[in-house]
């Protein structure tokens, strides 16, 4: 069997473009992995302040790692939520007069128990676990 010049050329072309594609894949493959951020250690607990200092009908925001939390006294109990609005992720604010949490972006409102009252939402606010320490401080986290 004889191999002609054009056969050889075609074979070398195939070889060249296949290796080129392989190199391109090898070079580009790490990029999506690079762009997706690695998991980082989360903040587990944070002291928010003295429970006795939080008056009924008031609330306080706090940083919880990269999250923002809100602790409020609804008259009977303390409630602690992630302040992230379940609609589009803006941070809700406590309205001391209406005693509800409202989102400035698209107008959602949540009750003092985190339940959606009106406006666009995707379920209730996320509740954060907390405990009162021996010295009377509110400690948020697991």
């Amino acid at each position: 069997m004889s191999v002609s010049g054009s056969d050889r050329r075609a074979f070398l072309d195939t070889l060249f473009f296949t290796s080129l594609a392989a190199v391109a894949v090898a070079v580009l493959a790490p990029v999506p992995f690079f762009l997706l951020p690695p998991a980082r250690a989360r903040v587990r607990r944070v002291i928010v302040g003295l429970a006795a200092e939080l008056r009924p009908g008031t609330a306080r925001k706090f940083a919880y790692g990269e999250r923002v939390g809100v602790v409020l006294h609804d008259g009977t109990a303390l409630r602690v939520f992630d302040a992230r609005c379940t609609h589009q992720g803006c941070k809700v604010n406590w309205d001391p007069n209406g005693r509800f949490l409202s989102c400035p972006c698209h107008g959602a409102a949540f009750s003092s128990t985190g339940e959606p009252l009106r406006g666009p939402h995707d379920g209730p606010l996320e509740t954060l676990p907390y405990r009162i320490t021996a010295s009377g401080e509110i400690e948020v986290g697991e």
């Binding site: 940083a63 302040a83 941070k91 604010n93 989102c103 400035p104 972006c105 698209h106 406006g119 666009p120």
Partner: peptide, 21 residues
């Protein structure tokens, strides 16, 4: 710690801003 009241995007995004409500 918060999002300010009455934030709005640039005018070209206002239709989307309004529609997502």
């Amino acid at each position: 710690l918060g999002t300010a009241e009455h934030v709005k995007p640039m005018w070209i995004f206002l239709p989307i801003y309004q529609a997502v409500k």
